[in-house]
Structures are given as structure tokens and as C-alpha cells.
């Protein structure tokens, strides 16, 4: 697996003390990362540092183009069409935009559209810069199920590795690798399911479990199933086999 980004001994401080306290991990091609943690544990700060928007001590090595989508807006234009500079785009880029927006939505005033569309504008702007790693703060939380699938399909097809910060634990199942931060340090990391099985540690950190993982773990405790099942079909099949 190709290493795309390497973070080594990363430290970030502010007037109140350490925000990131000696963090090291790597981002590999095709391994999407779900980054979660306790409030104020440094999740967004970590994304900003990787994106080069925050000063840090330690080493961050990037071998491919990296883009970041933060959970804030700073739009300067009136319509989505103008914000994406649609008329100046080449045909390939227009195709990308058309995948995510209908013509009528593109013409809408930025102030009149809902949060999910604003988030898609940011996401689309990032896609147009052709990243191979996309760092995103609360990427999927605003989007409906269909749009989430569309975004994930697009990133997979275009070999974009996702690193998402989120508190929505149900989303964790979309990702291959999971990192849990607590007080600026890595509390647990590993393959997503392996991390989610660390129920006690997660509970101590105030982090819940996705519904199907939670239900599977409890049913396993009573000997009703022998594994973790991530959808209704598999779980019902395992309970009443």
C-alpha cells in the first residue's frame, strides 16, 4: 500500500496548553480514515495542520495533492454557479459539477439553500482541484443517504482517500480505519470494527456505538450470534439461522 501522508511526532499548542500531543500515524492509498474523539480533543486542529493551515512542531510529509473541506463557509459570490466559477470551467470539470447539482440548484442564491447544498459546494470545489487525499470536517453529517452514496462512489472511482472528522458514529462504518482522539492523543486506532469492539474504552470516552454493532455485541454476549453484523439482513439471518 502506498503511503500518501505521514504524520510523525506532531505537537500543537495554544495559550491554554497542548492541543495535539505527540501524534503519529500514516494515511495509505485507498484506506479511508474516520477520525473521532472527545470534544476539544484536537480533531479539526489536526486536519488543519495536515492541510497546512496551522503551525505545528514535528513532521508532516505529503506525497500527493491534499485538499481540506472545513465545517465553515466563506462564500463571496451570489449564486452557486458563480461560486463554482462554472462558466470558466472546462467540460471535464463541468461534468464533475453536474454530477452533484441540477441546473436549477446551480442558479440558486447561496443564502437561500440548505446546509447540505452548501456543504456540497465546498466538496465540489475541492473535487475540482483533483485531490488524492481529501480531509473533511463533518463531511457526511449534513448529507442525505443518496448524496452520501454519490460522494463515496465518486471518491472511490477517482481514487480519493478520505479522512473525515466526525462525531456521527453510525458513519464510522463507511470507513476502513478509525482513530479515536482524547486530549490531543490517540486513544485507540485500528481497523474500524476492531476499534468499535473496544466498547469499554469508547464508553469511558463518552462515545457510543453504531446501532448494528451495539446490537450484535449485546446479542453475542448472550450467545445468540457469534459475530458482528452490520446490516439487518445479515443480523436477522444470524439470529434465526
Amino acid at each position: 500500500m502506498k503511503k500518501l501522508v505521514e504524520i510523525k511526532d506532531l505537537r500543537i499548542e495554544n495559550q491554554l496548553g497542548k492541543i495535539i500531543d505527540n501524534i503519529s500515524f500514516s494515511i495509505y492509498e485507498g484506506v479511508n480514515v474516520f477520525l473521532c474523539g472527545t470534544p476539544g480533543s484536537g480533531k479539526t486542529t489536526l486536519l488543519k495542520a495536515i492541510a497546512g493551515m496551522r503551525k505545528y512542531k514535528g513532521h508532516i510529509t505529503k506525497t500527493v495533492p491534499v485538499e481540506v473541506v472545513l465545517d465553515s463557509y466563506d462564500f463571496t459570490k451570489k449564486t452557486i454557479l458563480e461560486e463554482l466559477e462554472y462558466v470558466r470551467l472546462n467540460e471535464k470539470d463541468k461534468k464533475i459539477v453536474n454530477k452533484f447539482f441540477t441546473k436549477s440548484v446551480l442558479k440558486k442564491n447561496i443564502l437561500d439553500v440548505e446546509e447540505s447544498i452548501l456543504k456540497m459546494v465546498l466538496l465540489c470545489k475541492a473535487f475540482l482541484r483533483r485531490p488524492l487525499v481529501l480531509l473533511a470536517d463533518n463531511l457526511l453529517s449534513y448529507l442525505d443517504k443518496k448524496t452520501v452514496e454519490k460522494v463515496l462512489n465518486y471518491t472511490k472511482k477517482n481514487k480519493i482517500t478520505l479522512v473525515t472528522v466526525s462525531t456521527a458514529i453510525e458513519e464510522a462504518l463507511f470507513y476502513d480505519y478509525m482513530i479515536v482522539l482524547d486530549k490531543g492523543r490517540v486513544a485507540i486506532e485500528g481497523k474500524t470494527l476492531q476499534v468499535l469492539e473496544q466498547e469499554k474504552i469508547l464508553k469511558r470516552l463518552g462515545i457510543g456505538l453504531p446501532f448494528y454493532v451495539d446490537l450484535s455485541l449485546q446479542l453475542r454476549l448472550y450467545g445468540l450470534v457469534d459475530g458482528i453484523y452490520l446490516n439487518k439482513e445479515d443480523l436477522v439471518g444470524a439470529i434465526w439461522k
Binding site: P39, N138, S141, Y142, S166, T167, I169, L205, G206, I207
Partner: peptide, 10 residues
Amino acid sequence: YFDIYFMEKE
């Protein structure tokens, strides 16, 4: 979107 800023305990 209040919930997106907090984990379960909070």
C-alpha cells in the same frame, strides 16, 4: 445540526 458537534456522553 446540533448533534454533529458532540459525542454521546455530551
